[in-house]
Design a protein around this nucleic acid. Structure first.
Lengths: 202, 202
DNA sequence: TTCGTCATGTAATGGGTTACATGATTAC
DNA sequence: GTAATCATGTAACCCATTACATGACGAA
């Protein structure tokens, strides 16, 4: 997941580790705590060795220090192989992609991938959530189980969350099928028609 | 977490590994996939070595096979030290206890612990979710960030989930303060007044 | 000069998963 | 007798975390 997340962010613009981590924190904050440096930096090294990313030479101190002068930073950018790798990971239908975190990371980078891939991920996720929902309905109906009040409440809350997510997914899938990004209600009506390269409408 | 979960289940009645896992799967199914045997059995061994649990001798084949005849099963039960350990883990205010999974496990065993502990866990969780909620509101308001439509939608959905959970927690906290278990709406009106040892009503 | 934040990294550890190996019991 | 499921376990690995070490830079 970290690898995909890094590829996703660098897909747009080069960045150094520290910034990468901050951007990731806000981007994935809806469903996950920030990744730690202890996993980020080793991952960056691995990815560099694998050839997915390169780092521009850090600005040397003996040359003119760049603007605000920060010097030790290492800006990474995607290689062509990295772009391929990104597409590959986004498209992979491994069960991981439909788990909470995996799905979240995929979703966050949906604008960087093809509509067909988005649809497959969304439908995979929906299937998974529906399964969980059915399981929860089962447990709640078979009161034979005699769960205590707290466990029951937990199941109920979980079921509610599942139902809600399925509805949400359905909305988004509907948008996708209509060939447009999700509802832009709620303030931000500046429709960015710029980065929608993949839709011929049909 | 697995350790706490096992202690929690065995708190009620002895059980063998396989059953433990199934029970856990339905009990925690609302927010987590089942634990694998690969983590369950080693954990059971660790816990036995630590003295939290013991296993009754497996029924010997050369004696009368017990009823349906299953033989290899090893039923574990809690030792007094295990009970203490359970109370200790339930009461610990480590940040872990307020994470998604950690909180879920705690909540699932609320009926096995004291009201004061429940309240602390619930309030800790609420604080955590509120923090996340504020962070999400921030990101959504500072549209300066120029997130794409998908990321925006993700944040929105996340924010919604946070708000919902806070409301849910508030309900439950209200019940706790009133000295009664969560609302028993929705069918199961067989009020089990049996296992509520801690409430004098006030 | 000292403190906070930016910035990069390593070592040890943790808490789980997957895949595998084994065998008893039950139902057909 | 054979397939499904019950039941226990090990070994290898994975992906991340915590704690630690280092140091530059800007502001007080």
């Amino acid at each position: 997941m970290l690898e995909l997340a890094v590829l996703g962010l660098l897909h747009e613009t080069p960045m150094h580790g520290y910034e990468l981590r901050k951007r990731l924190a806000t981007l994935l904050g809806a469903f996950r705590a920030a990744f730690s440096y202890g996993s980020l930096y080793p991952t960056l090294r691995r990815m560099r060795e694998a050839g997915w990313i390169t780092h521009d030479e850090p600005a040397r101190r003996d040359e003119a220090p760049p603007l605000t002068g920060r010097r030790g930073r290492i800006a990474y950018r995607l290689t062509p192989e990295g772009k391929e790798r990104f597409a590959e990971l986004m498209a992979s239908t491994s069960p991981q992609a439909f788990e909470d975190t995996g799905f979240g990371v995929h979703f966050a980078f949906f604008s960087r991938c093809e509509p067909a891939v988005r649809l497959r991920v969304l439908e995979g996720r929906r299937r998974k959530v529906e399964e969980r929902r059915e399981a929860l309905r089962d447990t709640l109906q078979r009161t034979t189980q005699r769960l205590d009040a707290y466990s029951l409440e937990l199941q109920r809350h979980g079921l509610d969350a599942c139902e809600r997510e399925v509805r949400w997914l359905n909305e988004i899938i509907a948008c996708e099928s209509a060939g447009r990004p999700p509802r832009a209600s709620f303030g931000n009506d500046a429709d960015s028609s710029s980065d929608q390269p993949h839709n011929s409408q049909e």
